[in-house]
Amino acid sequence: TAHASRMPPTGVLPVEALRRTDDATRSECWSDMGDDAFDMCTLGDPDSDMRILALGDSHLAVMTDAIEQIAEDQGWRVDMAARGWCRWMGEDAQLADLSQMLQDRCTSWREEADAVVDEGGYDAIFVAAASHSAFAVLEGTDQAEFETEKLLEAWSKRPDAENVPIIALHDNPMILSSVQSPCFGNARALNDGDCSVPRDEAIADTTGLDDAVAQDPNAVTIDVNDFICAPDRCNPVVGGVAVYRDNAHMTATFIGTLRPYLERELVDVLP
């Protein structure tokens, strides 16, 4: 099948020695956790009439090459800013177990993101972030409800919400590196599906993102996971390409194979 995790005669790409570093993240678009800078880059045509703001965490950053190619294909301008362990949300939304320093840097990054949003001039805001990490919440607080509330709090800050849609990317599946590793270099194990996992385990279904999209009158979710997983299982290799460089970050090579499908989804939903 199209999603069968087969070992091609030439081996999986990228080669194992390069898989863990096959990363499209760029320093000019990425706020490193080592400082509190807000780094934002411009991809595509800087003079385009179509301006898109892309905000997220490392799951956005790994898509930089693909988003740049889409922007160039379509003649768009995409301003991108991403930060590790942080995403564009409302006040006091922090991931669990972060140091106070990382929380403070996330808060500062969000303030800068809010300022960029408030300046306006964008035709859409694209958001992408990891979905498997828990938030630091009071005991008894529902994680999904908290996420929904804090996403809507951030999204409400766009000054022209009726005309500026939120385009939210459904997060990619996750397969633990310990599950994947026995199949790299082992054609039999890979071809037998020994390193695949049930789709409903790989793709988070407790996220509050869908509820936030449903409650915002001008928000939409796009999802390319059908091009990553079969209806019932997810594999670490698709089409002879390694999907992941670790537990959950996709390789730049694999994201390149997803680019046409992501481009089609974006074109369909943009105003």
Rank of each mutant, 00 (worst) to 15 (best):
A2W: 04
L13A: 14
E16C: 12
L18G: 00
R20C: 00
T25F: 06
C29S: 13
D32I: 01
M33E: 11
D35C: 01
D35R: 05
D35H: 10
D36I: 05
D49L: 08
D49T: 13
M50F: 08
I52Y: 10
H59K: 03
H59A: 09
A61M: 09
T64H: 02
D65S: 14
A66R: 00
A66C: 04
I67F: 15
E68V: 03
Q69S: 10
E72S: 01
W76S: 06
W76R: 02
V78D: 11
M80Y: 06
A81F: 04
W85H: 07
W88I: 00
G90S: 01
D92F: 07
D92V: 04
L95G: 03
L98K: 11
Q100A: 15
Q103S: 06
Q103D: 11
W109Q: 01
E112L: 04
E119F: 01
S131Q: 10
V137G: 02
E139T: 12
G140A: 05
T141D: 13
D142S: 07
E145P: 02
E147T: 02
L151I: 10
E153M: 10
K157S: 04
D160H: 14
E162N: 13
N163F: 10
V164R: 13
I167C: 12
I167L: 13
L169G: 09
S177A: 14
G185S: 14
D192Q: 14
C195L: 13
E201I: 02
A204C: 00
D205F: 02
T207I: 08
A212C: 08
Q215F: 03
A219H: 10
N235W: 09
V238L: 05
G239E: 00
G239M: 03
G239F: 05
V241S: 00
H249P: 09
M250F: 14
A252E: 15
G256H: 03
T257G: 06
R259E: 06
Y261D: 01
V267E: 05
L270F: 07
P271H: 15
